[in-house]
Design a protein around this nucleic acid. Structure first.
Lengths: 364, 364
DNA sequence: ATGAAAGCGCTAACAA
DNA sequence: TTGTTAGCGCTTTCAT
């Protein structure tokens, strides 16, 4: 009924506890029949070694457990990343503890504390805003930390990010190349590093074309689908509305898409009319979406590779765990502009009323 | 440099190790100044209790660790479910170990063994095919198991599923109601329980209308996007092709959608023509997709609620952990048919060639 | 080739 | 209120 221990197995096999330990650990120097006797007892009792007790005594090998702390495990980007990290861990006989921070520093600290208290061998973290000094003691005690997706404010550790700024710059340059000059920026919380970078890329692109951002066209802090919808509705009500739009993450893109259809009905009803009308303005979004290419028009996006981000981070972490003490590495992966059609529409004729958008310009 | 222990804190604070233990555990009956002294030493040394060592001695409270074993953490359904389980765990001060089985019984056993060896308090498992007798010893030792998404073949434990059969029946009945009689079934591996259930629902619906399945229209074992594409291309080349189609999961739906556009070009190119043409046949898919309502026509789907599945499973598990010894519960959640438009197209006129599909019927 | 003793970091059960 | 002893399940070290 209770979980059997080595002692139980030893009694059942008529040997000492130490002999069982040797058999279970495959230590050479045990006679073959003793091995057989013990293994049989192990099977008969359904014995399984208590890894936590083992790790308490033998710390040479660590706990074979790593911690993964992401913003939101349900976000497809992090889910893909988590899967790829888990695969790398599994290959190395490690298990992974996961936790979502919800972008709350408080929860991040709780989760990380729970993980280090369980003696994880290393941590892969999507850091929230704010100081990460609290990680220092764990790091000094020998727990390596790798940051992913964004750097930690005040931590000089291995970091894997994508070139957000460059990706955004490409996206906006692309829109400029199609004749747009009034390009809106819709972004998430500006205190999130990726969002600052993407906004910087937006500005880069504009200024490279001798333009500067019109503050009226810039919206930060969009946290949800409906907020993005309202922001766009707002933008379209402007006297001089934008002809193109850069959306700075997938959630915002989704919201924006819903607002596109019907400016007079901002509750994004699921009705049949919703998809019938084409997009009224050019749009490029950061992050690819599964059905993006099947929209009307197909959605042009900046795509990043979460699997590569994850496996790179895992490789870095495991080499640290293996003892690599070299200087922290900063890996920046590239993004890819996937041109489909929504970003290739040419600019609207200016001065046109916004609440009844014209049909899309024919794309040659 | 090394991780400090209670002994270190005791020395630093000039008290006994036991006093430190009491302070750290908030045991009442320690004088306020002693508490203060110890807490200061704790802070100064950056002490954190070793939870694994604690759990070794004090097993009343368990390890506050649960294991979650899914098919594929990158699958949006499981990612959402995992997030909701993690939230429930976090609320209760628990951490969660996750692992993907990739639907391989071997890997499932490895992952579960790694989890139980770490003394998890309970397990939430999406079981692969085959026997799960290997779980019995862990269960007898007091580790509760909850199955999600599908039942384990030979395990009578709490199980949370959705009514796959009913959902599929509704979907196909819906197509029948729009005049379709030649309805294709495209499914994943038939040895996966959900797929068998959905196929059964397909048959239910047909026979309720006095029809029986045409084996030529049924394809099982579609494991990937391209396989689904080819299967559909095949179906359309039939002398008497189907006028409607039920796709039994999201991956297959995605593949099918790509094959819809251009029967002559089955490599699903990302080009501009891709989205221009409407769907040639009626389609209902199992599993909702983020942009489903924005397709042309909007995609009708059977949707399930992964968050509800996850939180239900978590609730069950935690009440078992809390000591509930009642009979195993089988929770079956309902699905919802989301009628958008792809499933509401009326049947093609029979005898019409399939490779140049007509335009969609106008929807009232 | 096998076993006995000590101890990993902590807490339960006792003293004092 | 505080400290001492024993021991959780295992591995190390040192016998035999």
């Amino acid at each position: 009924m209770k979980r059997p221990t080595m002692k139980d197995v030893a009694e059942a096999a008529g040997v000492s506890l130490m002999t069982v330990s040797r058999v279970v650990s495959h230590t050479p120097g045990v006679s073959p029949d003793t091995v057989a006797k013990v293994e049989q007892a192990v099977r008969r009792l359904g014995y399984q070694r208590n890894v936590n007790a083992r790790n308490l005594r033998q710390k040479r090998l660590g706990t074979s457990t790593i911690g993964l702390v992401v913003d939101d495990l349900a976000n497809p980007f992090y889910a893909l990343m988590a899967r790829s990290i888990e695969d790398e861990a599994h290959r190395r006989g490690c298990v992974v503890l996961v936790g979502s921070t919800n972008d709350e520093p408080r929860r991040e600290r709780e989760v990380i504390a729970a993980f280090t208290a369980r003696q994880v061998d290393g941590l892969i973290v999507v850091p929230t805003i704010g100081s990460h000094g609290f990680l220092r003691s764990a790091m000094e005690a020998g727990t390596p930390v790798v940051c992913v997706d964004r750097p930690a404010e005040d931590l000089d550790v291995d970091t894997v990010t994508v070139d957000n700024r460059d990706g955004a710059r490409h996206a906006v340059t692309h829109l400029l190349g199609h004749g747009h000059t009034r390009i809106a920026y819709l972004g998430d919380r500006y205190d999130i590093w990726t969002q600052r970078e993407r906004y910087a890329g937006y500005l880069d692109a504009l200024s490279a074309h001798g333009l500067s951002a019109d503050p009226a066209l810039v919206r930060h802090g969009l946290r949800s689908h409906p907020e993005a919808r309202f922001a766009l509705a707002d933008l379209r009500a402007l006297a001089d509305p934008p002809t193109a739009l850069f959306s700075s993450n997938d959630l915002i893109t989704l919201g924006v898409l819903d607002a596109m259809d019907d400016p007079d009905d901002p509750d994004g009803s699921d009705g049949p009319r919703a998809a019938a009308r084409p997009l009224p303005m050019a749009i490029v979004g950061f992050d690819d979406l599964p059905l993006a290419k099947r929209l009307d028009p197909p959605l042009t996006v900046v795509s990043q590779d979460p699997v590569a981000v994850g496996s790179t981070a895992a490789s870095l972490l495991f080499s640290r765990i293996a003892g690599d003490r070299s200087a922290p590495r900063k890996v920046i992966l590239l993004t890819r502009l996937v041109e489909r059609r929504s970003g290739e529409r040419t600019a609207h004729r200016p001065g046109r009323p916004a609440h009844r958008p014209e049909l899309p310009a024919a794309s040659s």
